[in-house]
């Protein structure tokens, strides 16, 4: 059975050390904010200028000036703080954030990530992703294992323009957790009933 997005989020939460700081990218990773147990005491950073995001706000507590980097309304918890973009990226670029979880279009065995444009077709821009992959202590990519056309997104060499070079620590997909290392993807964990045979269909160098 493939992991659901919620199960993927929980697998990633299991990787976080208590009392750490985490930046969550736009899209799938945002779900993590709502599922982190309070007991882990994690400070969620959003690069638009807040440390201490606690997930969705109550209906009567919504504020147009209280949003995350995905421009969604948020709530904050005790101990949170607001700051300008320079200080916010100082936290990222200065190496003060423990984990970032970003979406991806491609990750390759050389720890490269592509997630900001498809030449001639689509440009989302890099936003803070290039800073995050170079600045945070541990870079986790949360993405679907396959693209819409069925091709694997874990590849031998990224074909799309890179976001970062030699930066990815772990990839979490609906099939499992993978670590790009020594020019291969090492299997850290597989989703229930997923076999290595199924992974080999991706034509990537997996290593148990």
């Amino acid at each position: 059975m493939f992991w659901s997005t919620e199960e993927m989020a929980d697998e990633i939460i299991n990787l976080f050390k208590p009392n750490s700081s985490v930046n969550l990218g736009i899209g799938m990773p945002t779900l993590i904010a709502e599922r982190i147990p309070e007991s882990l005491n994690i400070m969620i950073h959003s690069e638009n200028g807040v440390l201490g995001v606690s997930g969705r706000p109550e209906k009567d507590k919504v504020s147009p000036t209280l949003i995350n980097a995905g421009k969604e309304t948020i709530a904050i918890k005790a101990g949170s703080s607001f700051f300008d973009s320079s200080l916010s990226f100082g936290m990222i670029r200065g190496g003060h954030i423990d984990y970032c979880v970003l979406g991806g279009m491609e990750v390759d065995v050389s720890r490269n990530l592509a997630n900001w444009m498809v030449p001639g077709k689509k440009v989302t821009g890099m936003g803070g992703a290039m800073d995050l992959v170079n600045g945070t202590k541990k870079v986790i990519i949360m993405m679907n294992h396959f693209a819409k056309d069925g091709s694997p997104k874990l590849v031998n060499k990224c074909s799309l323009p890179l976001t970062g070079c030699n930066v990815v620590d772990l990839v979490v997909t609906e099939l499992g957790i993978f670590q790009p290392i020594n020019e291969k993807f090492k299997i850290i964990k597989l989703a229930n009933d997923i076999t290595i045979k199924e992974l080999k269909m991706n034509m990537v160098n997996f290593e148990k």
Partner: peptide, 23 residues
Amino acid sequence: PQGTFSERIRAAGMGIRAFYTPT
């Protein structure tokens, strides 16, 4: 990149002409 974007703007205001970054 957003961090480089904010830092390039901050640098202008701070009298810093340029800086090196891994981003």
